[in-house]
Amino acid sequence: MFIINCPYCGERDQTEFSSGGEAHIVRPKQPTELSDDEWAEFLFMRKNIKGIQFERWNHSHGCRKWFNVVRDTSNDKIHAVYKMGEKPPVNK
């Protein structure tokens, strides 16, 4: 349990948000040309990092907007928050 600084609404309790999992997984441009292995990689395989992770969150009980969070999953400390489409403020 922690506080997330929504880029649109400010600091709110984590319970107002829904986690969208790992960020920056780009949907394949040409889905019809993908092999089963590539689909599995896109759909299911996750880094599931212990440490600094880039992830998506949705302020589902607030503005309902999506944004990105850089969070250390070993202690739940948030290092940065940035909007969709923006460049990550720290190196990925």
Binding site: G21, A40, R46, K47, N48, K50
Partner: peptide, 18 residues
Amino acid sequence: GHSSVIANMAGLKLPLES
């Protein structure tokens, strides 16, 4: 819970979330 951490050491990715 740490399966992905070990998998990453071997250069593998697993379909897991911890």
